[in-house]
Design a protein around this nucleic acid. Sequence first.
DNA 1: GATGAATGAGGATTCATTCAT
DNA 2: AATGAATGAATCCTCATTCAT
Lengths: 201, 201, 201, 201
Amino acid sequence: MSAKKDDKRDAILQAAAQCFSRFGYDKTTLQDIGDAAKLNKASLYYYFRNKEDLFVQVVLLEAERYLGALQEQVQPLMRATDKIVAYLTGRLEYYRQVLNLHQLSIENLQRLEPMFDDVYQAVRGQELAFLGELLSEGVTDREFLKLQPERTADALLTVADGIKHEAVQRARTRFAHEVDYAPVQEKLTYTLTLLLNGLKK
Amino acid sequence: MSAKKDDKRDAILQAAAQCFSRFGYDKTTLQDIGDAAKLNKASLYYYFRNKEDLFVQVVLLEAERYLGALQEQVQPLMRATDKIVAYLTGRLEYYRQVLNLHQLSIENLQRLEPMFDDVYQAVRGQELAFLGELLSEGVTDREFLKLQPERTADALLTVADGIKHEAVQRARTRFAHEVDYAPVQEKLTYTLTLLLNGLKK
Amino acid sequence: MSAKKDDKRDAILQAAAQCFSRFGYDKTTLQDIGDAAKLNKASLYYYFRNKEDLFVQVVLLEAERYLGALQEQVQPLMRATDKIVAYLTGRLEYYRQVLNLHQLSIENLQRLEPMFDDVYQAVRGQELAFLGELLSEGVTDREFLKLQPERTADALLTVADGIKHEAVQRARTRFAHEVDYAPVQEKLTYTLTLLLNGLKK
Amino acid sequence: MSAKKDDKRDAILQAAAQCFSRFGYDKTTLQDIGDAAKLNKASLYYYFRNKEDLFVQVVLLEAERYLGALQEQVQPLMRATDKIVAYLTGRLEYYRQVLNLHQLSIENLQRLEPMFDDVYQAVRGQELAFLGELLSEGVTDREFLKLQPERTADALLTVADGIKHEAVQRARTRFAHEVDYAPVQEKLTYTLTLLLNGLKK
DNA sequence: GATGAATGAGGATTCATTCAT
DNA sequence: AATGAATGAATCCTCATTCAT
């Protein structure tokens, strides 16, 4: 019966995704989502703990899809270095889009961030595997020196997330619309280049 | 002593501007604004009729500044035609920014539009004068045939606003974040070109 | 289980009716009504859209009872003409009482009028049937010429409501308590007499 | 300068009287009264302690005028007994009108009653004198036995007020609109008749 | 005396959330 | 699993009242 439950859960997630991107997080009411999912709003609490949880799950689902697509999109690139940089910068771009898409205010963002961190653990394993493979590829192609793929992949992800996190924190004192992602992207690219250079012969 | 009142009013407007752009229109509470302005929220009603009015005044102030800057920015261009097109398209871009900046939902936008129209009358005089001057310039430089600056300026502004308004109306059926301004800009540019060509020898 | 909901709804209506007639429309708070119905004030919104809606429903309920009583009260009269006139003037008298009973200001009255109109449609069917029967009676008793009961009943009701409506409109410039219903009653009686005479041989 | 102040005070009272009878006590705002009196609403507090005080003063002024008129109106009656009964029942009628005129809710009424009592002391002296005179007349005309005018007048007024007060108290448990003054009038008339009969030979 | 400015209290309304069934 | 029903908290707004000038 878990399959059935999952179906319903997915239907709710889809309805919620539409509502959130249409109205933004704050303006979306559980009534809206319930209506869209053809379910009483009270029933949503059977599948999700609360509005925040539901939102985070929506974002997680989108993240899985987006990052999957990004991974495929990056494959045609020639060098492992380029694939890695493209993937990690594409990942940041995704983060920016989520904020805009759901009209998340900085306030909400900071309230929800810990929940995001929890949820990202779920995707992180997959991401680590992907990066690890790219790194191994790089070694095979003699692009990188011998390295420990898992630890290096973890380091890369941590660096990328650290830079992203710093950007959000810095936003604390500035206005939401003023957050400029260009310098963050630049910093990320620069740091990754340094790191990956360190792996080269 | 009206200066003092105006000072306070301005302080509130500034506080409100910060809040609106930080949290968006809906999420900004009068409590937020009152706190930021170091004033009881009830006192805000001494200076403004209601939340909507306050918001519109904020936008008006921003519009004055923005349009002033735009006018200066446009002056270095060589031909009057270019100045006019640049000004009127820059103006539309501003409109787009306001929506994003304050995370105005289409719903709110349509509710507030009449209030905006009222308020824009205040700036319109200044805009007409500016455009009129550009047109006169164009005549002096033999770029345009003889024309009535006031009436022509009015026509240009009306056309630009009409195209903007149509875009909002069309948005009625689409999601706020999906409104694509590129075709609107294109339509505006095209229409203006036609119009201004009509003024040429 | 809808019966249960209706029971609660009725309990609220009764509580509201008491409050409205005790304190008047404006002075009655939803807190008052909630207290009287032993329900959180927010719960009232589960049953009614807002204060105005609640008020209108109260009046509707009273109207049904009053008009029912009026119909019985009118039956003993000998001639159909008399019954009709008595019913329609009694109806106006009821309208006057509602205003006084709930201390409705002209301001509120004019704001609520459209809602009343909506709600009166619900009773109108019953009223039309009653009047139609009186008219048919009149024909049987050779008091009236042959006529179309439905259309004639409709005409009578429309005339009565029109005269009532005119009185409210005229009140626009006068104080609520100064509205004098005597001339309205007179006008109504006169007009009805003319109309009904037109139906006689 | 006290004359000037009194003028202003009277102007305010007149403005307030209009507002109160137009909108009712609750719906009248101090802003309304200030506007009508062409005075800042804060200035009203220079002349009156608060809204209640202002209202009570308005009623007092009206009472003086009304009771003065009533006294004249009663004079043409032949017998002192009739004059007294007419005066005291007319007085009760006035009381009823005040409630309706200003749409005083029972709630407000009971809150304001103590203030009324204070204020009525001001008129009471005049009323006692008037009644005393009627009583003396009655003695001169051999309608009554010898009596002490002051004490008897006081007794009459106390009885009349007591009956009125009882009516208000009884209203506590009933709805405002249901207060029926007819039995109160009757009771008053009956009691007065008994009393005055007691004074006759 | 008069008023501009400020505020606390209260009222209508919305919404996330809970709970019994 | 699903939902009808209920509620506390938060939000916009109005108004009587106060106070410094």
